Amino acid sequence: MYVAVKGGETAILNSYELLAADRRGDQDTPELTLAQIKGQMRLALARVMQEGSLYDEDLAALALKQASGDVTEAVFLLRAFRTTLPRLGYSLPLDTAAMRVRRRVSGTFKDVPGGQVLGPTPDYTQRLLDFGLTGSDSAPSPTLAEQPLPERLPCVLDVLGSEGLIEPERPADGDPAPKDLTREPLMFPADRATRLQNLARGDEGYLLGLAYSTQRGYAESHPFAGEIRMGEVAVTVCPEELGFEIEIGEVTLTECQMINQFAGSRTAPPQFTRGYGLSFGEGERKAMAMALVDRSLRAAELGEDVHAPAQQQEFVLYHTDNVEASGFVQHLKLPHYVDFQAELSLIRTLRKQFDAQQGDEA
């Protein structure tokens, strides 16, 4: 039971002012602008857009600034604003195979069609603090490639697909439209499209922990990074009044396809199976974790034993949402005076009974 906090309006208003002052920081330091956040904190920006389910760099930058860099709070702010927006329509499925690639790597084949494209990545840095960044020197201009990348890089997993060594990607029977989890409640059992939508909005840290667990023996998983690609993908719509497709813009996406060994079943031959992850912006770690958890949640579908937490739909999908999790944890800060008094009275009664029993035994 919660009770209202009375007589605290002045204190609450003062807390707003203190929060604003702490957010601003030293007045002698130039204020952080949204343009700086967009340009120099792109990875935090991408995570806020991904978990906030809204692709808008300006709004994500504002949310990060308002939240003083607290990503979970920024996600909450963005989702809250998202609920005020009208739904004008739905875009057509994105064609990630037509991505204008800026980074594409594979951990399964050294020589892949189109080559490995390292792109912007910290993977090959020494993870040492760069004190050169304490100054204001501009970054060096990137070296241009001798030959530009082709407009369309072939998908690495097509190599295995051509030999029939990996499960084909087929739409579900009847190809039903996926549910919209922002408008419909999560129900079990959830189909794969619903699970992927849930994971896409899920907290990166939580998914990372689950993905790690699958590699440590809690899902019998031995994955390989079939392909990870990042770049820009066109967004198209087909207005009813026009009757044809038009491109309305593009979004930056990171896509990951994990492959896992599968011993086969009574109806399926031994082959590789897929785990899939997709993230707004440069979200490689999120996309990889999502792909690992996606494959883990397919255990029952593939006839594998379900015994690990990451294989259990309800455990995974009910706890992915950082906004819901944060709210449920932080609500403990609210007054619970009545609840606690009831618990306190019970403990006092039980303690008296215990003390009396101990005295009788003595």
Rank of each mutant, 00 (worst) to 15 (best):
Y2K: 14
V5C: 11
G7M: 08
I12G: 06
Y16N: 09
L19M: 14
E31D: 11
T33P: 08
L34H: 09
L34R: 10
Q40S: 11
M41P: 10
A46I: 14
G52M: 07
A67V: 07
V71W: 01
E73L: 13
R79M: 06
A80I: 04
R82E: 01
L85H: 01
L94N: 02
R104M: 01
S106W: 00
G107L: 00
K110Y: 05
D111E: 15
V112A: 05
G115N: 00
D123N: 10
L128R: 13
L129V: 11
F131S: 11
G132D: 05
L133H: 06
G135P: 11
Q147P: 05
P150M: 05
L157P: 03
P171I: 03
P176W: 01
D180L: 04
E184V: 14
L186F: 04
G205I: 09
L208G: 14
G209W: 00
Y212F: 07
Y218C: 07
Y218V: 04
S221T: 03
G226N: 09
E227S: 03
I228K: 01
V237P: 02
C238Y: 07
G249E: 04
V251S: 03
T254N: 06
Q257V: 10
Q261A: 12
S265R: 08
S279R: 01
E282P: 06
A291Y: 02
D294P: 03
R295N: 15
E301F: 15
E304P: 06
P309K: 04
V316G: 11
H319Q: 14
A325E: 13
V329P: 10
V338L: 15
E343A: 07
I347K: 09
K352F: 08
Q353T: 10
Q353H: 09
G359L: 13
